[in-house]
Amino acid sequence: MTISYDKLWKLLIDKKMNKTDLKEQAGITYNIIARLGKCQPVNLESLYKICRCLECDIGDIMEFEIDEAVS
Rank of each mutant, 00 (worst) to 15 (best):
C39Q: 12
I61R: 01
T2M: 10
N31H: 08
L11P: 04
K10P: 01
N31F: 00
V70C: 07
K49W: 00
E24T: 12
E63Q: 11
N31W: 00
I66M: 08
G27I: 05
L22Y: 08
K16N: 15
K7E: 10
L47W: 00
L8C: 06
L47D: 00
Y5T: 09
E55T: 13
E68I: 05
L54C: 10
K38Y: 04
S71E: 15
A69G: 09
P41M: 08
I13N: 13
D21R: 02
L22G: 12
I66F: 08
K10L: 13
I50P: 02
I32A: 15
G37V: 06
K16E: 15
D14W: 03
L36M: 13
A69H: 07
I28E: 10
I61A: 01
D14G: 06
S46G: 09
S71L: 14
K23S: 14
K49A: 07
G27F: 07
I32E: 05
Y48V: 08
I61N: 03
G37K: 09
D67T: 14
M1P: 00
E63L: 06
L8K: 02
G37T: 04
E24C: 07
L8V: 11
S71K: 13
S71C: 10
T29Q: 02
Y48L: 08
I33N: 07
L47G: 00
Y5N: 03
E68T: 10
M62V: 07
M1S: 08
Y48K: 04
C56R: 05
K16C: 13
V70D: 15
A26R: 05
M62S: 11
M1L: 05
T29A: 06
N43E: 00
V42D: 01
L47H: 00
T2H: 04
G59P: 01
A34G: 01
S4P: 01
T29W: 04
L12C: 12
D21C: 13
Y48F: 03
G59A: 05
L36W: 05
L12W: 03
Y48A: 07
K38M: 06
W9L: 09
Q25L: 15
K49R: 15
C56E: 11
C39T: 09
L22C: 12
N31I: 00
C39L: 02
F64Q: 03
F64E: 05
I66Q: 11
D6Q: 14
I50K: 00
D67A: 12
E24L: 14
P41Y: 06
Y5W: 04
G59M: 06
C53A: 15
D60E: 10
I33L: 10
L11N: 07
E45H: 02
C56K: 08
I32C: 12
L11W: 01
L12V: 14
C39V: 00
T29M: 04
R52T: 11
V42C: 09
Q40F: 03
M1H: 03
Y48W: 00
L12K: 05
I3P: 01
Y30P: 00
A69K: 09
L36I: 15
G59Q: 03
L11E: 11
L54G: 11
D21K: 01
K7V: 02
A34K: 03
E65V: 14
A69N: 12
L12H: 06
T29G: 09
Q40L: 14
G27S: 06
D21T: 10
K19I: 11
V70T: 13
C53I: 11
I58E: 05
E65P: 00
D21W: 04
K19A: 15
K19R: 14
Q25Y: 09
S4Y: 05
C56S: 10
